[in-house]
Each structure stands twice: as structure tokens, then as C-alpha cells.
Write a protein that binds this DNA or RNA. Structure first.
Length: 109
DNA sequence: ACCGTGACTGGCA
DNA sequence: ATGCCAGCCACGG
């Protein structure tokens, strides 16, 4: 990835995730489709795994599964960090579940 | 070049 | 309502 003649699909995913406004969340499937719809939701989660330590930082905490559940919180530096960040943005999370997720869901475009 | 793995999703029993 | 199966693409070994 050093040559960077062609950017990895990760960068594309990161860019979409960075477009998510604070106080809003997005699902993996939506991001996958926003990337061009040529990748599956699994690839998004996998890309998130590479987002750790990325600059600019990727708001992966705003990315949750289709159920609004913080499935990937275990991948953060600390499992509590994801909920703390969401709560700080005004998003209420209980039992790893986003409250009013249906209203907080944001879709590119 | 082949196989396994992965922070998901949707459909069917 | 809940649980299991299969599909999906990309990357590392």
C-alpha cells in the first residue's frame, strides 16, 4: 500500500464513514452500498479493523450493525470507549443497544 | 495460486 | 419470535 498508485478500498470506506455527522450513526450494509455497492457489509467491518490508528481518525463508533447494536465495541482500545463516544454525542446506548437507532440512522445522500 | 478468516445481512424453518 | 445457513469481497499466510 506504500506505492498508493491505487488506493485500497479501505480508504473509500473510511471516507464514507468520515462523512457521518456527529450525533448520527450508520449501518455496515449502508456504508458498503455507499462505497459503490460492489462490496459486502463484511468488508466494511473488516475495513474498520484497519481504521484503528488511521489519520484522520475514523469515527468507527458511529458505525453499528443493522440492529443498532455495538457489535464492534470489542475492537476498540477499550470496550467502553465506543458507548462513551456515542453518549457524548447525544446518542443513548443501553446494553450495547442504541436507543432510537431508527431515528439516528444516517444514510449518505 | 489456494485456503481461511472477518466489527454483516437477509432469507427460511 | 428465535436460530441456523449461505452469500459476499478482500487480504494475509
Amino acid at each position: 500500500m506504500a506505492t498508493s498508485t491505487k488506493e485500497s478500498f479501505f480508504e473509500r470506506v473510511f471516507e464514507v464513514v468520515r462523512q457521518i455527522p456527529a450525533g448520527r450513526v450508520c449501518s455496515y450494509g449502508v456504508i458498503a452500498e455507499a462505497c459503490g455497492g460492489r462490496i459486502s457489509a463484511r468488508m466494511v467491518g473488516w475495513a474498520m479493523n484497519a481504521s484503528h490508528g488511521m489519520l484522520p481518525p475514523v469515527p468507527a463508533h458511529r458505525v453499528v450493525n443493522r440492529n443498532g447494536q455495538l457489535t464492534g465495541k470489542h475492537h476498540f482500545p477499550t470496550p467502553d470507549m465506543m458507548q462513551q463516544l456515542l453518549d457524548k454525542e447525544g446518542i443513548k446506548v443501553v446494553n450495547d443497544q442504541i436507543i432510537d437507532f431508527k431515528k439516528l440512522i444516517w444514510i449518505p445522500g
